[in-house]
C-alpha cells in the first residue's frame, strides 16, 4: 500500500504538491510513482527562473528500465530546484515526500492549489490502477 500524506495535493500523473508558508508550491513524485519506476538512476530538474504552463513537461525521472516525464501541475515560475538529486537520485526512492522533492515554484494563480486533487481522491485513483 502506498503512503499518501493527507496534507498534500496530487495529480493524476502522480505528482504531489505541497503549499509552503510563503505561498510557493513544492513538487515531487508520489510514493506510488517511485515504486512503479523502481530504482531511480537519474533525475533532471528544471532551472530556476523557467516558466511553465500547467501540463508542460518540466522534469524527467529515469530508472534502469523506464523514463518518465514529470508534468507541471500548475502554471508558474520555478524558484528553486533540488540540486542534491544530481548525485543522489535514490532520494526519490527513500524519501519521496521529503528529501526527494523535485522543485519549487511560484504559481501565477494562488488559488490553483485548491483546485488540485486531495489525498482521498488520489488514493482512489491509485486503488483503481492497482486493480
Amino acid at each position: 500500500m502506498s503512503n499518501i500524506p493527507t496534507e498534500l495535493r496530487y495529480t493524476s500523473s502522480h505528482e504531489w504538491i505541497k503549499r509552503e508558508e510563503d505561498g510557493t508550491l513544492t513538487i515531487g513524485i508520489t510514493d506510488h510513482a517511485q515504486k512503479l519506476l523502481g530504482d531511480l538512476v537519474y533525475v533532471e530538474v528544471p532551472e530556476e527562473g523557467v516558466q511553465f504552463g500547467e501540463g508542460d513537461d518540466c522534469a524527467v525521472v529515469e530508472s534502469v528500465k523506464a523514463a518518465s516525464d514529470v508534468y507541471c501541475p500548475v502554471t508558474g515560475e520555478v524558484v528553486a530546484s533540488n540540486e542534491a538529486l544530481a548525485d543522489t537520485p535514490e532520494l526519490l526512492n527513500t524519501d519521496p515526500y521529503g528529501e526527494g522533492w523535485l522543485f519549487r515554484m511560484r504559481p501565477d494563480d494562488e488559488t490553483a492549489f485548491d483546485n488540485l486533487m486531495d489525498a482521498d481522491a488520489y488514493a482512489e485513483l491509485v486503488e483503481s490502477e492497482e486493480h
Binding site: V64, K65, A67
Partner: peptide
C-alpha cells in the same frame, strides 16, 4: 543509460 533509447523513450 538505456532510458535515452527508443525501446524505452519511444517518441522522446
Amino acid at each position: 543509460l538505456q532510458a535515452r533509447e527508443q525501446h524505452i523513450r519511444r517518441s522522446k
